[in-house]
Design a protein around this nucleic acid. Structure first.
Lengths: 211, 211
DNA sequence: TCAGGAAACAATCAAGCGTTCTTTTTTATT
DNA sequence: AATAAAAAAGAACGCTTGATTGTTTCCTGA
């Protein structure tokens, strides 16, 4: 046998990508063999090389595309929102929804950074930095405007993102709480965390006025 | 050559464990070869099997010992502290300090859970659950006593732990901020997050009275 | 001092790895 | 209907991996 009936390059390429995400998510990049991946798609391992140069570039493609997608969608979501509190809420909601919907991609991008070549890793970290800056800039502006009470915007940025991303560690679709409920709970924690103890009531009014 | 002069079993065992932590932390469990590990310790790869049954048991030993240590030290730290707010602060401070001081172990325990056999993984997750319960129980008690405003203690537990653990992703010793400063910043975020918007000033007084 | 256990070496195994190359079959084009 | 291009099979490659075994050397305690 050689070429199979009904075979199609574009469809196979997509199947390989999906199977790659699935297997890397489940077993990790190093633990996934190309024979395993090929079997999942229904191919021989050698045939995979029609679709990527090597194993590393498969990982890089998946991670880079995900990061670029995350960044551009976040920027689109925040476009036109000016008030720091509104931006913070929008960022939080976007981040949570995106992470709940694409857990595998997110997980891979976070876990397998170390498996990337040096220059590949640098490129991905650059994209991640740009994404983090969306939040950090918002926190700085809010702090300067007196909307937030934040001593260290950079630390707060890391803390908030870690907290939000952590939802990937336990969230499962169809659980007791809906995505909307989780967004509300998490966003509430974030907002309370940055408005500080004494300033909270004042900010609570501002938030109400904005909603 | 065979037995090396001055060789000592206990010392070698400890060297293997340390090198294992170092290499797994740096490259990941799957990516670390036993020959690499042996070279790091100054042995032939076959000699490693005097010290563990197989590669998997090395990982399990490292992870399980770390989790048991984390749990017992946390329990010791919280012993005798009754007030929910005081317990929350103590937990937060302990978690942060422990994670800043033993980043490699923590990182491995979090990242390589998936590389463990099913039953090994179940055991480690059980230990982790007991650790998480230290925080979750505190949050529930505090919520019932009106000290905290928390709708979903379980979600809040995951959120807080993710936030605190995230410090491992960027903290480096000798950075701009000291460990004490970071503990204060992060703990502030945690406390503000669980005291809620309106109740904050009231709780702030209670906190002062307690300090 | 000298036996017995501890510690490490050295060589080897089968299996699996990522990758390359050639061949064969199917599809699309003219 | 003839031909070219696309898609996949299948065999093979050199290497590395985790693991095993038999042997040699060193250390220690009676």
């Amino acid at each position: 046998m050689a070429r199979t009936i009904g075979s199609n390059g574009a469809r196979t390429a997509e199947a390989i990508r999906q199977a790659g995400v699935k297997l890397i998510y489940r077993h990790g990049y190093e633990a996934m063999s190309l024979r395993q991946l090929a079997a999942e798609v229904g191919l021989q391992s050698g045939s995979l090389y029609k679709y990527f140069d090597n194993k590393q570039s498969l990982l890089f493609d998946i991670v880079r595309e995900h990061m670029a997608d995350l960044l551009s969608k976040a920027e689109a979501d925040l476009a036109g929102i000016d008030h720091p509190m509104a931006r913070l809420k929008a960022f939080s909601a976007f981040h949570l929804r995106y992470h709940m919907q694409r857990m595998a991609h997110v997980f891979i991008a976070n876990m397998e950074i170390r498996s990337l070549d040096d220059d590949h890793r640098a490129m991905v970290i650059g994209l991640r930095r740009r994404y983090e800056n969306l939040l950090e800039d918002t926190l700085r502006e809010g702090a300067q405007a007196g909307v937030f009470q934040i001593a260290e915007p950079k630390v707060a940025t890391y803390a908030i993102i870690s907290m939000l991303t952590g939802i990937c560690m336990w969230y499962r679709p169809g659980g007791r709480l809906s995505q909307d409920q989780l967004v509300e709970i998490y966003t509430g924690l974030v907002v309370d965390g940055v408005t500080g103890p004494e300033g909270a009531p004042v900010q609570a009014e501002k938030r109400r006025a904005l909603a």
